[in-house]
Design a binder for these strands. Structure first.
Length: 493
RNA sequence: GGGCCGCUAGCUCAACUGGCAGAGCAGCUGACUCUUAAUCAGCAGGUUACAGGUUCGAUUCCUGUGCGGCUCACCA
């Protein structure tokens, strides 16, 4: 009848034929009594009884096997896959023809029928009646190999989710992680809040921002690079325990570990310091792992990682000493440190400031080795403009980052609450900005004013949900845990 | 931004040293009332990412462009 080779054309033609015959291919509703999973469970529960359960359920046709006047097919909904069995002598000649000629793989079907077990043991619906719920115009990816083309998987994630089961599991795991985190924090009296994404001054991290413009206000606004300064305003306002899970935006390079928009969890707790934040991190990660994975051990890229507290704690000073034999305290300025690096012919990029150079040494020689969960403590002051000084070490601040599976996962400090010190730090950053550091923290007078009203001693913490999801799902690329990762827009359709 | 690799039918992949662009699944026609990667017989399906160049002849070699992957740089 139809001799066109294009599958979309063929399906469009079927659609027209159906409409001409009075069949609406996109009806408004179909009421189900059971999901696929519920139907399967209902049958198991009823086994041994006389009457098999009758169910109305619906799903997408994922496989069809026609054998003359009887057909098997599998339908899939969000809960499971279930087999259906259509017989001409059960549904009638006309209806059976409609099934064979009107339906294609991928179409949605609603069925009603009784459950039984086939000879091979599969619980199946013997269909008494059925109807089309939605016609598909494009063929689905292939049933054995699924969809492997990475670009198509990201650009058309719906196809990836549809045919690649592990992908579905990954994103379900991610959502469960976030749910478990909320529960953990809520139970401890933390209040979930929402702060602005559009900010007149960006801050709270070192990164270049996205800029946008509000037409009516005729004002440039920045997409936030972190939530920090607004959450700390809430601490000033007397909300002693707050957290936010939200999207941050950084106008930087894209890699397997960086997406321009990513999700961060930030937590602030009054009357706490960075030691308390370490306990919070290890307890939270452990609880989430137990809840979501059912264990505190996970495998990441071939490494076994144990999240059971307590985690290892090491100062940045000790970690670098161990890895490079450099005692950074003996080289307290950038020139002598450069000199020492040269003497040892270490392969690290030269950085303009002491703190950045220390960090570079750390990134190069220490971080990749941090497979088991590790807190690295006491960072250089000049790269930490929002953290409180260490009382006994004026070049350092009470700050830690933590690492799992070699990934940098999060950052925390005893928050700087001295408004005069904060102003000095911003002035330092201003100099770095003038020296061409595009990621230096901008001066924020409104933040200093808030601090002058008084902020209690506070511990603050931020960590990347995406990186955590990578670890929990053993994904090597951040794009595997972001439903729609940022890609270059493709010209045309 | 640099380097390396990839782009062939709707999907997954072949095509030797430059010599007729092919298979499986999906599709179409037919057979088949317990199949499950159903089976059997037949048919159709291509701007080889795009634009140039070399050549009698280019999927193949060269140049450029686009998109993607990995990686380096960058990124607390």
């Amino acid at each position: 009848m139809t001799d066109t080779s294009d599958q979309r054309e063929q399906r469009l033609q079927k659609l027209t034929t159906l409409r001409a015959a009075g069949v609406e291919p996109y009806p408004a509703r179909f009421s189900c009594t059971h999901s696929a999973a519920e139907a399967l469970a209902a049958f198991v529960a009823s086994e041994g009884q006389e009457e098999p359960p009758v169910v109305r359920t619906a799903g997408r046709l994922m496989a069809i096997r026609v054998m003359g006047r009887a057909s098997f097919a599998h339908i899939m909904d969000g809960t499971s896959r279930i087999q259906i069995y259509l017989r001409q002598d059960e549904v009638g000649k006309e209806a059976y023809r409609f099934f064979r000629e009107g339906f294609d793989l991928g179409d949605f079907i609603g069925v009603e029928g009784s459950l039984f077990r086939t000879r091979t043991g599969e619980v199946t619906i013997l269909v008494q009646s059925f109807e089309m719920l939605a016609k598909t115009l494009r063929p689905l990816p292939e049933k054995w190999h699924g969809l492997t083309d990475v670009e198509t998987r990201y650009r058309q994630r719906y196809l990836d989710l549809l045919v690649n089961e592990p992908v579905r599991r990954t994103f379900i795991t991610r959502t469960r992680m976030v749910t478990a985190m909320r529960r953990f924090l809520d139970e401890r009296g933390f209040l979930e809040v929402e702060t602005p994404v559009l900010q007149p001054v960006y801050g709270g991290a070192a990164a270049r921002p996205f800029v946008t413009h509000h037409n009516v206000l005729d004002a440039d606004l920045y997409l936030r690079i972190s939530d920090e300064l607004y959450l700390k305003r809430l601490i000033i306002g007397g909300l002693d325990r707050v957290y936010e899970i939200g999207r941050d935006f950084r106008n930087e390079g894209i890699s397997t570990k960086h997406n321009p928009e990513f999700t961060q969890m930030e937590v602030y707790q009054a009357y706490a310091d960075y030691n308390d934040m370490m306990c919070l991190v290890e307890e939270l990660w452990h609880a989430v792992a137990e809840q979501v994975l059912g264990t505190s051990r996970l495998t990441y890229q071939g490494h076994e990682v144990n999240l059971m507290p307590p985690w290892r704690r090491v100062t940045m000073h000790a970690a670098i000493l161990e890895a490079t034999a450099i005692d950074i305290e003996e080289y307290p300025d950038v020139n002598s440190l450069h000199q020492r690096i040269k003497e040892l012919s270490l392969e690290v990029n030269a950085k303009p400031a002491w703190g950045k150079q220390v960090e570079e040494l750390f990134d190069e020689y220490v971080q990749p080795k941090l497979i088991q969960p590790t807190f690295v403590l006491d960072y250089p002051l000049d790269i930490s403009p929002l953290a409180k000084k260490k009382p006994d070490a004026p070049r350092l601040v009470e700050r830690f980052e933590f690492f799992v599976g070699g990934l940098e996962c999060g950052n925390a400090f005893s928050e700087l609450n001295d408004p005069l010190d904060q102003r000095e730090r911003f002035e330092m950053q201003r100099k770095q900005l003038q020296d061409g550091d595009e990621e230096a923290h901008p001066m924020d007078e409104d933040w200093i004013r808030a601090l002058e009203y008084g902020m209690p001693p506070t511990g603050g913490l931020g960590f990347g949900i995406d990186r955590m999801a990578m670890l929990f799902t053993d994904s090597s690329s951040i794009r595997e845990v972001i439903l729609f990762p940022t890609l270059r827009p493709k010209p045309g359709r």
